[in-house]
Design a protein around this nucleic acid. Structure first.
Length: 618
DNA sequence: TTAGGGTTAG
């Protein structure tokens, strides 16, 4: 009967089955109590198990151990530590199996002092040279950022297994000490796939993608078979590099070896396509998955948002809600980016109230995206409200608000907000200065703009990038100081790009400066020979100055170089979608009606000075 | 002991 009952305990999956067994255990077979409680803990019924534990007259070491291990595994770290402390106070015998899980909970909660005390205790009990205990403390010190102590523990291990090595390799990897990690790896006599993965991941996380790929190749030469972890690490490298060619090779490897990649591999594959700009291929992977979790959904929605396809992002978000999957902070942040791109105040309002009602706005990512969305949809008041309510403000929150003010015409407020930011712990970055210089540009504050530009490096230690130079060029150009802009370009410490020359060229058109326009166009012809806009601008400029021959020459140059003039569309977004119009375009379904009304409008504007109110629906 | 999605600027 006893063995029959033990089988019943081990095979029970449902709480009701266990309750039936319980009645027998408590009355007749108390020796099975341990197995019963362990089964309950394995099935995560911690409360039920704990009530039984508390009712028992005597609890032995094994029983304490299974509780501490279960609590730690289920991330109930405080409970794990409390149980250990209770055990110690009751003078219960502590064993080597008691230590690793409680140390893990100390790492998770970052209770450093307690962890160190437990370490002394473990040595006192004579577990100082137990491999499992040593590995646990090594991991604890590594996670606490105390690599020196982790190393001392490692050096004290007499017979090191691959796990001890791997653990320290990944610790060095996290602190960026790649060479220390590599020395350990090279010193290993016996490696596992995990050792290779840890080393590849170490190079990848520290930016040395080339070396990561070399290690992957060497791993295969040495006959180690890559596993799913290896593939995910490689795919994330391809994603970071935007290397579609290599990404496709990894995909082929997966297709050849793994008929059904797991969810993490499939998500990494999607992410690789997304970051390489191949959104439709990413969607194919998404559609192919037979099971999707919130990370999958989130990756695809973000993929659309990051690749300028906001409508697809929102459509997929609706799909996700339809499948009863509750969005989290990550999905919401991407959806907000999509709304901001649409610039649609109505969609923005809708998602804004949803977020507030569901309580998502306490997350920094969500709050920054929300305020940014409001400001891009033109609702600066709402943006300011979100910003003011934020309890935690990071650099992105400040940048979003400064940018929002700058773009909505509140340049002085943007600059004042920067002054407020300087009073905080948050340090400005390159994006902060793009926003500040934009603000100066909008109100023509040349001197202040130049001062900000100088202070970037001298005070804030930020090297100006080409976009900062572009802001200054724009600042000069908008004030009509074209020669100063040109001199500034010549002295730039980075190579001027199309934005720089394009800004100068546009200013030349406005201020009819043919001489500088010719220089700018020459530069642009090299940088973007296919862009017809530059040729058109120059040709028009010649025509306006009466230089017809030159104007014709540019036009014929365009023909010779086969540069096509791209059509300029006007467009308007209404409730039912986007309506595009081209010159002489009659493709719109209500084209005739529109033409009649436009004609009427122009007739009236000639004959009648009074205000005209015309209602027309597209 | 090794693995996947997010916010700002251009």
């Amino acid at each position: 009967m006893e063995s029959h009952l033990l089988n019943a305990i081990h095979s029970s999956l449902h709480i009701n089955q266990l309750r039936q067994v319980h009645a027998l255990v408590t009355t007749k077979y108390q020796s099975l109590n341990f197995h019963f409680i362990r089964r309950l803990l394995n099935l995560s019924f911690t409360g039920y198990a704990r009530r039984l534990f508390d009712q028992m007259p005597r609890q032995n070491q094994r029983l304490h151990n299974v509780f501490i291990a279960a609590y730690s595994r289920l991330c109930l770290n405080t409970e794990a530590i409390d149980m250990f402390v209770m055990m110690h106070r009751k003078n219960s015998l502590i064993g080597s199996f008691t230590i690793p899980p409680v140390v893990k909970s100390c790492s998770a909660l970052l209770v450093i002092e307690l962890g160190k005390q437990i370490h002394s205790l473990a040595i006192h009990y004579g577990f100082g040279s137990n491999l499992f205990v040593q590995t646990a403390f090594m991991d604890f010190y590594a996670k606490s950022g105390d690599l020196d102590s982790a190393r001392i523990v490692f050096d004290g291990i007499s017979v090191k297994d691959p796990i001890s090595y791997n653990c320290l390799i990944s610790a060095y990897s996290k602190t960026g000490d790649v060479s220390a990690a590599r020395r350990l790896f090279d010193g290993m006599t016996e490696r596992t796939v995990v050792s290779w993965n840890s080393m590849i991941s170490c190079y990848a996380h520290n930016g040395d993608h080339h070396e990561a790929i070399l290690m992957f190749e060497r791993m295969q030469v040495e006959k180690y078979c890559p596993n799913e972890f290896t593939l995910v690490i490689l795919l994330s490298i391809c994603a970071k590099l935007g290397d579609l060619e290599m990404g496709l090779k990894v995909k082929k490897f997966i297709d050849d070896t793994n008929a059904f990649p797991n969810m993490i591999v499939a998500t990494a594959l999607m992410e690789m396509f997304v970051k390489c700009g191949a959104v439709d291929e990413a969607r194919q992977e998404f559609d192919r998955m037979n099971k999707r979790d919130i990370v999958t959904w989130g990756a695809m929605i973000a993929g659309y948002a990051q690749n300028g396809r906001p409508s697809d992002a929102l459509e997929l978000f609706e799909c996700m809600k339809h499948e009863q999957i509750r969005p989290n902070d990550v999905t919401i942040a991407s959806v907000l980016t999509a709304c901001a791109q649409l610039g649609s105040a109505e969609a923005g309002e809708r998602i804004g109230s949803y977020i507030e009602s569901e309580g998502f706005n306490s997350n920094v990512y969500v709050a920054s995206a929300l305020l940014s969305m409001y400001s891009r949809c033109g609702n600066i008041k709402k943006a300011q409200q979100v910003f003011d309510k934020m309890l935690e403000k990071d650099i992105v929150s400040w940048n979003s608000m400064i940018t929002g003010l700058a773009f909505n015409g509140y340049a002085i407020d943007a600059i004042n907000l920067f002054e407020q930011m300087k009073e905080t712990e948050v340090k400005p970055n390159d994006i902060t200065f793009v926003a500040l210089l934009t603000a100066c540009t909008h109100v023509g504050l040349i001197d202040l703009g130049l001062e900000f530009f100088d202070r970037m490096l001298s005070v804030h230690d930020i090297v100006p990038k080409v976009e900062h130079y572009a802001c200054i060029v724009d600042l000069f150009c908008r004030c009509g100081k074209l020669n100063e802009a040109f001199d500034f370009i010549l002295e730039m410490k980075v190579e001027p790009n199309v934005v720089i020359w394009g800004t100068l060229l546009s200013a030349c058109r406005i201020h009819s400066n043919v001489e500088l326009a010719e220089i700018a166009v020459k530069k642009l012809q090299v940088l973007e020979p296919e862009n017809s806009g530059n040729y058109v601008l120059l040709s028009n400029l010649y025509a306006n100055s009466g230089r017809w021959q030159d104007a014709l020459r540019v036009r014929s140059l365009m023909r010779d170089e086969k540069v096509q003039k791209t059509a300029a569309y006007s467009w308007i977004e209404l409730e039912d979608g986007v309506h595009k119009f081209l010159v002489s375009d009659s493709s719109h379904s209500k084209s005739d009606e529109i033409c009649i009304i436009v004609e009427g409008l122009s007739m009236q504007s000639v004959s009648d000075e009074s205000d005209i109110y015309v209602e027309f629906c597209l």
